[in-house]
């Protein structure tokens, strides 16, 4: 797995006069940003330690007044990929899947994974670009091998059964 940094939040406007700030958190559980350990800014230079308070507020270590908090407004917060908690079996972070190269069983390249989407009916991979784009259901049958170490996955594109629209149904 390559070392990568993941955007987990952003510091918003100051709140009150004691250095509290509003937080915009991009995690499934916003409160968990406080448990990830030290965060860094976009450049990876400044280390920021956060304590999460109620109502989407946060206290930054070393920031005790409103002016200091205002100087940090807009700072994006990043975390090392390794700091995220481990996943369950057959579960993958989208950040790990995006960018993997997809190949067929025979080794022919299909393109790279551009996105992983989920609309309540199982995840699917968006592989390739433009006219060559394919949407592959993220199932063991269609994606039997996910090798994060080698940054590749093996895809068996499913056979298509086309059921054309009938009378009374609009075909686009």
């Amino acid at each position: 797995m390559t070392a990568q940094r993941i955007l987990v939040g952003e510091i918003g406007r100051p709140h009150g006069v004691r250095g509290l700030v509003k937080l915009r958190v991009f995690l499934t559980d916003p409160a968990s940003i406080g448990t990830l350990g030290a965060l860094t800014d976009a450049a990876g230079v400044q280390r920021i330690k956060l304590t999460v308070k109620a109502d989407g507020l946060g206290q930054i270590e070393g920031v005790a007044d409103r002016d200091a908090a205002a100087r940090l407004t807009g700072t994006r917060l990043y975390v090392e990929r390794a700091q995220l908690p481990p996943t369950e079996e057959e579960e993958f972070y989208l950040a790990d899947l995006v960018g993997l190269s997809a190949v067929t069983e025979a080794g022919a390249p299909l393109g790279s994974v551009r996105a992983v989407e989920e609309h309540g009916a199982g995840a699917y991979l968006v592989v390739g670009e433009g006219r060559g784009e394919q949407l592959i259901p993220f199932t063991r049958a269609a994606v039997p091998v996910v090798d994060l170490g080698a940054r590749r996955l093996v895809v068996i594109p499913p056979a298509e059964i086309i059921v054309p629209p009938q009378d009374g149904e609009a075909a686009a």
Binding site: L84, L94, E118, A123
Partner: peptide, 11 residues
């Protein structure tokens, strides 16, 4: 969506 720790489960 913005969720950066989103996971996908292989079905």
């Amino acid at each position: 969506s913005h969720s950066s720790d989103k996971k996908a489960k292989r079905g």
